[in-house]
Design a protein around this nucleic acid. Structure first.
Lengths: 207, 207
DNA sequence: ATGAATGTGAGTATCCTGTTTATATTCTCG
DNA sequence: CGAGAATATAAACAGGATACTCACATTCAT
């Protein structure tokens, strides 16, 4: 519970006060996510972001002191989103199949708008200074959620953390790959991904 | 069978004839793979590659007409390697567990030297002109191999292709993720990845 | 020893980057 | 309305990185 509303708002040069400027800031962040996902960190330039947002470059620097502050804002928004998705899927004590279905649905939803944003944020975008901490804390909570789910459906106490790691990265891999091929909506893929999760958590000892 | 030896050698400005120049070309390709894996496509500059290879920039352009020809050479070498790994693991008719073990071992081996090369090659590096074809053909053969394995251990004829896609991208995801965390050698991770493969291919119908 | 093969690295021209700043427009509120 | 604050604009700058060439030096095979 408790969807955090009072965000520390990242590092900003000044707070937007009027509705107009709030929309501008939102447009910049959204466009930033788009550029980052589409062109990668290499193609992520402040000028491009401003243009994609339909806003002049000056407006961008009115609110974000530099490029990194902008990435941090994008990162924060995306991570909050993903975390809440896992949270919701793992809430209550649902049967395994339902959990898997909801998790798949949610994760796909979280990645269908900016398909490769997650990967870019994790792999390419730099994490100097303060964002390293936020980064690590996200990773930790991310794994925690998965570990909780694993513990919930597996009796064995051993290897829970490793299993969480394997499970999460496998899911990410499948989704990332599907996104690159524009197959995120294919229902048979969603079904198979669900099967993969169930099978792994059911833990067949079959030879 | 038939490990192709006669490579068309990609697009090259001229063929190295003496042992010296062959070593130079090899060093360039190897350094290129290293730079690509370490800095990504964004940091992949011909000057950096030459320096990393301990070779002057002029030597690089003596054999590779341009940047793209170099990437093509790197790509070809890596893809050949990966393909042969899958080939070997799927050869003969081994029991499922052994196949999984060997596949995991081989794939990890193929990625432990240049951990993120595979992803960079697939995601970031451009595929203009002729390399698009090679790229597609690699993807096709890649999936074929996996599909063959899936068909071998699953009776159901349906969804074989989708399963191959899910399986391969899940494995890639886990390995890529582990590489980023320097956990490629962790034995419990290798074991769990094997378990994931077995569980999925065994196909539990458990609720 | 001679010509071919190979290696060198300073230099070129171009493009792009993040950021500032002086100016113009729009809002808020008395 | 209208004055001052908030917001938006885009030309301009300084610096750096880039891919690639070229005139020359070195090493090989014969």
């Amino acid at each position: 519970m408790s969807t955090r509303i009072a965000k520390p708002a990242a590092r900003m040069r000044k707070q937007p006060r009027q509705a107009r400027s709030i929309a501008t800031v939102e447009a910049i962040i959204e466009a930033g996510a788009h550029v980052l996902s589409e062109l990668g960190w290499a193609g992520f330039s402040t000028n491009k972001v401003a243009e994609a947002a339909g806003v002049s470059i000056g407006s961008l620097y009115q609110y974000f002191p530099d490029k990194l502050a902008l990435v941090e804002a994008i990162r924060r928004r995306h991570f909050d989103h993903v975390l809440s998705v896992i949270s919701e899927a793992a809430a209550d004590e649902k049967p395994l199949r339902q959990f898997a279905r909801e998790l798949v649905r949610g994760m796909i939803g979280a990645h269908s708008i900016h398909p490769t944003l997650h990967q870019v944020l994790l792999d390419e975008a730099p994490g100097d200074r303060g964002s390293r901490a936020a980064h690590a804390s996200f990773q930790a909570r991310y794994l925690e959620h998965y570990a909780a789910a694993v513990a919930q459906y597996r009796k064995r106490r051993k290897d829970t953390e490793t299993m969480a790691r394997v499970l999460s990265s496998a899911i990410e891999g499948v989704i990332h790959n599907a996104a690159r091929r524009n197959m995120l909506d294919a229902p048979e893929l969603q079904k198979q991904l669900g099967e993969l999760i169930c099978a792994y958590l059911s833990g067949s000892k079959a030879a």
